[in-house]
Design a protein around this nucleic acid. Structure first.
Length: 314
DNA sequence: CGATTTTGACCGGCGC
DNA sequence: GCGCCGGTCAAAATCG
């Protein structure tokens, strides 16, 4: 019911100002009017998982040289939506994009020499500093809000959890995941809204450097991209969308179509000819055990939307 | 037994 | 400088 309200609450006035979109998202093909544009997709109470909103943000981080970033302007608005403050927080690139931190940390360690340990720590820190510096600056991030019983939504990629932290002012922890594929450093944060525990906020960071292991090649990864959207970014989207859309189509053909239209209007790389045969490894069982009937066991409504040859294809 | 999760420690950034 | 906080590491535990 109140989803609309919530989304509006989350939607901030342009905290990032007139920031350009990432290189890969031109204004033509990706018609978000501001960084925090949302699509309200559906407010049915049917689903256990609903796509509530979509954010694309941190475009500034994609700029090649981000040396003079007014961090104050990028700091999260903090008032608008506490439950999403983390998502909105831009954390843009340290003001100095080079390697200052690593140098200083080395200096700090100088007096306490512990032989090997020190060296290890040094290298660790250097690595970490480099890593974080690079990542923080470059990776575009996308936040999705879904209504779901499960925290970690299946999106076609394999993730390894590498951390969990308590979220301030929230009883729900935030989990940190990393794509298990070697050389792919896409990250994902998952947390529950503290206002509405049924809502899961998933934040993706980075671009997959490989096709989804679950939906190999012809699915969403660049297959039907509007002009100007790179496959890299599209992968980030594409990897994410199917899970949500899939549930929709289980529910109602019309709703599914409506969702597709909405997403299309937002420039999502998704259209009718996009195959939607997605495998659901784990959560599938959970869903089936819960409110969902056995709709996931076959193509079901899938056939209403997807041309049959698509379903066969893989 | 390898892959994944858990969890406390650690680090850097930031505000005061 | 200090403390808080978000994010990450990595050893131990757990899972399949």
């Amino acid at each position: 019911m109140e989803k609309k309200e919530m989304l509006q609450a989350v939607k901030t006035e342009d905290a990032i100002g007139s920031s350009p979109f990432p290189n890969s998202f031109t204004s033509n093909s990706y018609p978000f009017s501001s960084v925090f544009d949302f699509c309200e997709v559906e407010k049915s109470s049917l689903g256990f998982m609903e796509l509530l909103g979509v954010q694309e943000f941190s475009p500034l981080l994609d700029l090649p040289q981000v040396s003079t970033m007014p961090s104050s302007a990028l700091k999260d608005p903090s008032e608008t939506a506490k439950e999403c403050s983390e998502v909105l927080n831009q954390q843009p690139a340290t003001p100095n994009s080079s390697s200052i931190s690593s140098a200083s940390s080395e200096a700090l360690n100088d007096d306490r020499h512990k032989g090997e340990q020190e060296e290890q720590q040094k290298t660790k820190k250097q690595l970490k500093a480099k890593k974080t510096n690079q990542k923080r600056q470059k990776e575009p991030r996308f936040a999705f809000m879904t209504k779901s019983e499960v925290d970690h939504l299946e999106d076609g990629y394999r993730w390894r959890k590498y951390g969990q932290k308590a979220v301030k002012n929230s009883p729900f922890p935030r989990s940190y995941y990393r794509c298990t594929s070697a050389s792919c450093n896409v990250k994902k944060r998952v947390e529950r809204s503290f206002n509405d525990p049924s809502i899961v906020v998933t934040t993706y960071e980075g671009q997959h450097t490989h096709p989804s292991p679950v939906m190999p090649r012809s699915t969403l990864a660049g297959a039907s991209l509007p002009q100007g959207i790179s496959t890299g970014s599209a992968n980030t989207f594409g990897s994410l969308m199917p899970g949500n859309l899939f549930l929709y189509q289980q529910r109602n053909h019309q709703q599914q179509q409506q969702l597709l239209n909405t997403l299309q209007s937002l420039g999502f790389p998704y259209n009718d000819s996009t195959p939607k045969n997605i495998a659901f490894p784990r959560e599938r069982r959970l869903r089936n055990a819960g409110t969902a009937p056995a709709f996931l066991s076959d193509n079901g409504l899938l056939q209403d939307i997807v041309p049959s040859h698509m379903l066969k294809e893989e």
